[in-house]
Design a protein around this nucleic acid. Structure first.
Length: 475
RNA sequence: GGCGUGGUAGCCAAGUGGUAAGGCCGAGCUCUGCAAAAGCUCUAUCGCCGGUUCGAUUCCGGCCCACGCCUCCA
């Protein structure tokens, strides 16, 4: 039974994943625009995609994971010019930081990570096909637009027809970009943007003159190139449903003469709020992995906090949830440690085997319920509940593999979990007091020992005894 | 205005037409001189009002509140 279901935005229902081709699931994820460090909201989505992939792999599918890097757009160009750096150098810098963050989160690296700037030819070819088929037109200034009215199915993903768009936008909302005026219809979107002074030296030659690709186009061209035969899953944040994904569908399906459906399953992750509001720098609730790490929480704790809620539901992130995540992870780690110690195995080697697919049997006992929850539209919260319930029943050594298969699927790097409190520098006088208490204790002079404990407490310290000594903790 | 999501214990959060998983925190107990650790136990009638039903937190209708999207955005 390797059935995995996900909620498909196209049908608005949870559907079992049936790959286009055999046992291979093609999975395209809209990746980051590399102009700054990704924030935890971005990672909420990327982490959901990572678990999605891990669940599919654990179920026995071979996943081809493609995640693009958007390395040319208004923001990357503007910021790089601001900083006086070459676009490639600038985007390379942020790409590296993105990769480092992904690693810290223990995310599986996509097998293919295409960059927009390295697929200009494919994008131009797609535009040419669209023009040929009458779905696109060039304007006088050399920009090319997709003619939305030429595609009957436009809007099928976001249910555009059922919505009444806000049309009376304030006058100053009208884009000043010259190419915006030359569109035949307000709904038409740009696929090729003619070169502007604000683009600096960023441009490519094309049949329509110098310019650069529009944002929606790269995903279409690269997804078709790398997953043309495995158009299974396409995912991203909810905000991409419209217009980004709608436009991708239009471009892609029209470019091939409607021979192919551009992806069977569209999966969207909800947004993240911080303290009940949208993250923003002005509200001082804008966090990156570094910000959370600086507060003493390793990335695995943040990963837990960002993934333990339903992926299709907005989560409200607060710093308090990190404490809960930390404590829960400690329990998982302790359980893992016990099982491994009993079996005389190392966590890394067990997980490595699982990652390689060496334990693809369906023997999930005693975690069958947890796995079932995980494969049913990725119910991570439900799965965690089932895991803790199973742990409470104190299962035997047979739990080792199923438990670690779940840990693999959830992607928690338990080695990052710190069970002991970090050692802190203890002032000399406190050390002396504590030593005196220890000596009194050894002499079974309880009265003195207790008095010294009180003194320590008054100074803000607490002694934690071990068999052969003591640790000190700040109150 | 249109479309959509959510309101479950102090906090976070699953779930189901038949009297509510789990995590965190807190409290009590057990166990160790004390403390810590560990273990055990305890804490909700599911926003409000109607309806359908033998029975609804779960279905339907209305209302209130919060939030998201409506062409920059994970």
């Amino acid at each position: 039974m390797k059935q995995v279901t996900f909620h498909n935005t196209l049908s608005r229902k949870a559907e079992p994943i049936v790959p286009t081709k055999g046992n291979v699931v093609g999975m395209y994820c809209c990746g980051p625009t590399v102009y700054a460090q990704a924030h935890i909201g971005n990672f909420r989505t990327f982490l959901a995609q990572d678990v999605m992939r891990r669940v599919l792999q654990t179920a026995g599918y071979k996943v081809i994971h493609v995640r693009n890097i958007t390395d040319v757009d208004d923001k990357t160009i503007a910021r790089s010019i601001e900083e006086g750096r070459q676009l490639t150098e600038f985007t390379e810098h942020w790409t590296q930081i993105f990769h480092a963050d992904c690693e810290r989160f223990n995310m599986l690296a996509p097998q293919i990570e295409p960059k927009a700037t390295e697929h200009i030819a494919e994008q131009i070819a797609m535009i040419e096909q669209l023009i040929q088929r009458g779905h696109a037109y060039a304007s006088d200034d050399g920009s090319v637009y997709f003619r939305v009215s030429s595609f009957d199915e436009y809007g099928k993903l976001s249910r555009l027809k059922e919505r009444q768009l806000l049309t009376d936008a304030p006058a100053n909302d009208t884009p000043v970009d010259s190419d915006e005026y030359t569109r035949d219809s307000a709904a038409d979107f740009v696929m090729w943007k003619s070169r502007k002074p604000t683009d600096g030296d960023v441009y490519w030659d094309s049949p329509w003159g110098q310019g650069r690709p529009g944002w929606h186009l790269e995903c279409s061209a690269m997804a078709m190139k790398y997953l043309g035969n495995n158009l299974d899953i396409h995912s991203g944040g909810v905000d991409l449903t419209f217009p980004h994904h709608e436009n991708e569908i239009a471009q892609s399906e029209c470019s091939c003469g409607h021979e192919k459906k551009f992806f069977k399953y569209w999966i969207h992750a909800a947004h993240l709020l911080v303290d009940g509001q949208k993250m923003s720098k002005s509200l001082d609730n804008f966090y990156t992995v570094d910000d959370i790490a600086a507060k003493g929480y390793p990335p695995v704790v943040l990963r837990y906090a960002l993934t333990s809620g339903a992926y299709r539901q907005t989560i409200n992130f607060t710093l308090d949830t990190l404490g809960a995540a930390q404590s829960a992870l400690v329990r998982l780690k302790k359980f893992s440690d016990e099982l491994l110690a009993e079996a005389g195995l190392k966590r890394a080697s067990v997980l490595k085997e699982i990652a390689k697919g060496k334990h693809l049997h369906d023997d999930w006992d005693p975690f069958a319920d947890a796995w079932k929850k995980l494969t049913h539209d990725m119910n991570i919260a439900g799965a965690l509940g089932a895991i803790f319930t199973a742990i409470k029943a104190k299962p035997g050594p047979e739990a080792l593999i199923p438990f670690h298969k779940l840990i693999f699927a959830l992607g928690y790097d338990l080695d990052q979990v710190v069970i002991e409190k970090p050692k802190v520098d203890v002032p000399e006088d406190i050390k002396i007091l504590a030593q005196k208490r220890w000596d009194a204790k050894q002499a079974k002079d309880w009265a003195t020992a207790d008095a010294l404990r009180d003194e320590l407490a008054a100074a803000g310290w607490k002694a934690l005894d071990r068999k052969d000594g003591f640790d000190l903790e700040q109150l």
